[in-house]
Design a binder for these strands. Sequence first.
DNA 1: TGAGTTGAGGTTTTT
DNA 2: CCTCAACTCA
Length: 668
Amino acid sequence: MSTVDALLRDLNPAQRAAVQTIHGPVLVLAGAGTGKTRTITYRITYLLRKGIPPAHILALTFTNKAAQEMRERVHALSGRATRDMQISTFHSFGLRILREHARAAGLHPHFSIYDTNDQLTLVKKALRGISVSWKKFRAEEILAAMQAARSPDSDQLILPPRDALETTVIQSVWERYRAALRAANAVDFEDLLQLPLRLFTCEPRIRKQYREQFTHILVDEYQDTNLLQFKLLYELAREHRNICVVGDDDQSIYGWRGAEVRNILDFERHFPGATLVRLEETYRSTAIILDAANAVIHRNSARKEKRLWTARKGGLSIRCLVAADELSEAELVVADLLDRRAKRNLPYSACAILLRMNTHTRPFEEVLRRYRVPYVVVGGTQFYDRKEIRDFLAYLRVLVNPQDDEALLRIINVPPRGIGETTVERLAAHAAQTGRPLYECLATPPTDHVQPAAARSLVFLHHFLEDFRRGLPKEQPAALARALWNALDYRKELETSARTTEEITNRLANVEALLEAIATYERRSSQPSLEDYLQFITLLRNDDDEELEDGKVPVMTIHASKGLEFSCVYLACCDQGILPHAKSVALPGGLEEERRLFYVAMTRARDELTISYPRTRVRYGQVEPRHPSEFLKDIPAHLLEWHHNADQEQPSEEETASYLARLRSALR
DNA sequence: TGAGTTGAGGTTTTT
DNA sequence: CCTCAACTCA
């Protein structure tokens, strides 16, 4: 038997069809737990066995974690090095194209990538620049509106009709925002997709190059792609049409940030003659959990019909724990979790607590700590958002791209070197007037406007940075970064500004970790450079390896749980108004997306699903009665066991005390 | 430059 | 009510 046959024997008939149909467009509708990743990795391996050169394969994912996992699994299955295959996120792929054609895209090759933080700073500055009573306009809202209104094909905003003043403000912030990015030789995350798309549509030679290179395209989590991502794919695939997209419209939960469910619903219209494969056999959940989830999701209208089934018969009933209030809900859940864990001898990491909002973690953390249960809140404060890390990365950014004004402004007086606000303002005004980047103005400060002492500091800073810039071409990134760190008096600055010694040690350790990360990067990369590292690190913001450790109960939002599975799932805070969230329900299509969210949460569970909600909730200082989520009504009654434990359980003394205190303050 | 005050807002988040 | 950010004053 050939190796190809051996490969196919591992798959069920639907998966096999998805793997073997390598010519023409394929839409794989992959329900929760149906072996989606397996199918993709087998398909890539199959392509390789059929003689498709690795360099012709493009596999796109949404997150770095997914890309990494896919790469590892392809390597393990095929035995081939994945180096030559483009298995990456959409954004990394866009970055790669931009780096290969920076000039054509109007960028200097050492461009910076501005993250959300940098974007917000730019918007705030723009808001100050236009003299509206900017108290009325929050930067976050303006940024969100700009993001939502970006046209995929041009630099223009397509603003929905709204208040005239708002329109003017957003429009003018947008123009300033674009100008600032251009001046800084920087791009934002959207640009990483949009500029390549523009290259494809405006430069036939570039389009041809990539069309010929990537003859076989795979896309994971297709339901999460936005319009821009679709257009990019379409440009690449419209001729050879060897594109296979895998996704599940029922798990589309990112509509609020631009994901287009229509992309998956309309795939067969975009690519006529597409082969449709439905993966409906689930290997994850018990029949009971699956039946309940199916019953819920079937109430949605705009969806591709599918019915998941499993060979796993029966299973434990779904339970709904009704608690007196939020704290007792956490107590019920944690107590139950410990009980189930002990009975079934599960690791802590097999029992997850899923929540609608990040703010809901608090009572759970409190109780978990009290019971001394090891836990991890997935998606908390991120390493790269720490001040000392951002500061140091800003130094590196200035070295690599001296036009990066945002980075320079961040570190111009950090550690303090006598460059005050006024000096910075005058320098910025001078730069704006002469149309030069800030960095250049450091060397020749406007002496008539800036105090001599401050001017000397500016010149000194310029010398200091230039020294390191000169080292850039010859020195290795890690050594250069280390030398820079040692030369900065940041360490001393930390020692004076930090409150506790613990904080100092912690922050120093963070920077050490960063320097170590650069060294690791340098060892792994074939052609290490700081510019490469910085671009790479901006797209890799979270410490995936730190999360989901063994031996810790994962606590996370439902959004964060997508793609994961746990033996035992606690879906908490299922009261009407939270799930579905009142704010979402008000949006068009909002209730259906909330239902999908509920569906995603349910289908994370392999063996046991426990739902809970509090009968009262303290909101904005008021004790409010709560009602069960409307989604619970859609779970067939015979699959759901209600536990009104709250009534029988004697609340602890401190519980009663805190409840009474809250009641009192609410009545005041 | 940092602690204290004021005021608004209170959903989900990767790249 | 609590949190976070922005502003104020010493």
